[in-house]
Design a protein around this nucleic acid. Structure first.
Lengths: 333, 333
DNA sequence: TTGAAAGCGCTAACAA
DNA sequence: TTGTTAGCGCTTTCAA
């Protein structure tokens, strides 16, 4: 392994000149730069990450804590993760992957100076990781919205607004009997931020617009979807519109509705809250409030970089939800 | 941030003693150890990862290159990734996540001494990354099997054997008209290791056991599944058993077969090649050759550690496939 | 059983 | 525009 001194010797300059050529932190004359760049190429030189981190207090690595449990919505998580990783790379950052069952890991990698910042997914209303994160010297960006952000940055879809928008879109079409097939009971019980907020927005719109509404939780499986549909139809046999906020169950919900005489969109309108590609790939394309997972991941990284490079203060960014029409919602018959 | 010198001062010992208490690389008297440990606790000391890497040439990080494209089988990938991450943690290692479209990343993180070893998924027969990996000073473990491992370690399910076993299991039940609904055409076209090997094992068993067989590729979507089933039934209207090696399409294949009068298992036996939980969660539980993704991830890390700690030579480990009976295969009527 | 001290390979302040 | 050099915080050899 060639070192910076080897490069300096080979180019006939000092080590600091090599360092500055690499970092661009001071002007270098063209001929010098060219000699150094040639030496770097010739020797196949790569800076030693550890040495760099030690001297500069920068690792160019961010930690990403993702819930890799298989029960949650793998597809959506993957989109967040790719959003974070590809965006991080565009800033010349790498990503260290932590999993949910490794909460101590956040402190470990931060205190051990392995990372410059942390991005944490799957935030709960009273998330126990938040006090830990608030005490770290590295900035943290939460994907989700806790009750008390405690000075941490947050980014997410405005799920409150999405719940509200979903109801008002359907009410605007004339629906007055609206069902919500939502997250699994366990997700709601641990007060997962997005699930709770969507439900809140749903309820507030229901109260405001004076429509009839029923909410049922739904396990992320075919069986769960069928059960949820049955519960919904029992509670509200004359339902004319259904909001589905459960990507895994989505196709099974639509199928179960159809089998019970509620074809979409003829008899029952369906409005999904899920990533665009999922809504689009259904047998019947579904009108949806798109969940821009990839974008959220990217924005999280951009906020990270803003805090690192311009020590911009923490902020909360909630992306505005939009209804994307794909033909699965229409006025009730 | 407390440093090792702060700890040493606070405990009244030298820095080397603190270092040795931490690493256990030389015996320390009980009283000294206790004083040091107390100082560490009191100061909340954490070794600086970069300094450690610089001095010891060890980062305790492995790189994991995973295909995070959404078109591939997200669920299976997730199981590999969790297997790798949780297993790595048990060896006190962290995981740096690289994505497929960042092939230069392997060289970058290895040459920059960011990682001690690399685990690479989604290997193709003539994978262009292999010469790069073979030239690195860090050991690499491939999940998959290239034509020429070039001295790299490999681990995977024995897909050749799985293809063979699938056919012989069905032939053993009396089937002589067997279909294979496999990977997407694109996956086969880029000679992805597992897809190609399963197909090879399938064909060799077909030749050997003298049964009639048809293979159709299958896109990973509902539409793709329906098309694949239609192609299969056109080519072989009297098919009595179907092997499905496409986890995403699996539920839609079974549904499409049923809609065409080929209910499982009454009229058509179905044998899946997929993770156990997927086979189990189908509306009709499916007999399968389980794809132990989590285990393969774990084994990959174990092989990594064996090479790092005992510089054991490279080897190829192919896990033996087994048929797990769940009732979806039976003799033809 | 412990300590002293020489690096590991870089960055950046200071100097020219 | 470039060079000199003092660290950054560890590990490990050598010495006691």
């Amino acid at each position: 392994m060639a070192t910076i001194d080897d490069v300096a010797r080979s180019a006939g300059v000092s080590t600091s000149t090599v360092s500055y050529v690499l970092s661009g932190k001071r002007p270098i004359s063209a001929p010098t730069r060219l000699r150094v760049e040639k030496a770097i190429r010739d020797l196949g030189y790569r800076p030693h990450a550890g040495a760099r981190a030690l001297a500069s207090n920068r690792t160019n690595v961010i930690a990403l804590m993702a819930p890799l449990r298989v029960d949650v919505n793998v597809n959506v998580i993957m989109q967040f993760v790719t959003g974070v990783v590809t965006s991080a790379r565009s800033f010349d950052y790498d990503v260290l992957l932590l999993t949910q069952d490794d909460a101590a890991g956040l402190d470990r990698v931060a205190s051990g100076s392995m990372v410059d910042a942390l991005v944490v997914m799957d935030i709960e209303a009273e998330d126990p990781r938040i006090p830990v994160l608030a005490g770290l010297r590295q900035p943290t960006i939460l994907i989700g919205l806790p009750r008390q952000p405690q000075g941490l940055s947050c980014v997410d879809l405005d799920f409150d607004g999405a719940g509200h928008l979903a109801v008002s879109h359907l009410a605007g079409l004339g629906h007055t009997k609206i069902g919500l097939i939502g997250s699994p009971a366990a997700v709601l019980e641990r007060h997962t931020s997005y699930a709770e907020r969507l439900l809140r927005g749903f309820r507030s719109a229901v109260a405001e617009l004076d429509v009839d509404a029923v909410h049922v939780s739904c396990e992320s499986s075919q069986t769960g979807a069928v059960e949820a549909v049955d519960r919904l139809l029992t509670d509200m046999p004359d339902v004319t519109a259904v909001i589905v906020h459960n990507e895994v169950a989505l196709p099974y919900v639509v199928a179960a509705l159809r089998e019970r005489g509620c074809s979409t969109p003829e008899n029952v309108s369906v409005l999904a809250v899920c990533p665009a590609d999922v809504a689009d790939a259904q047998p019947v394309p579904l009108t949806s409030i798109d969940l821009p997972a990839h974008t959220i991941g990217r924005v999280a990284v951009e906020m990270t970089m803003a805090r690192l490079d311009h020590d911009q203060p923490a902020e909360t960014r909630l992306l505005t939800p939009h209804v994307v029409e794909r033909g699965s919602t229409r006025p009730p018959r």
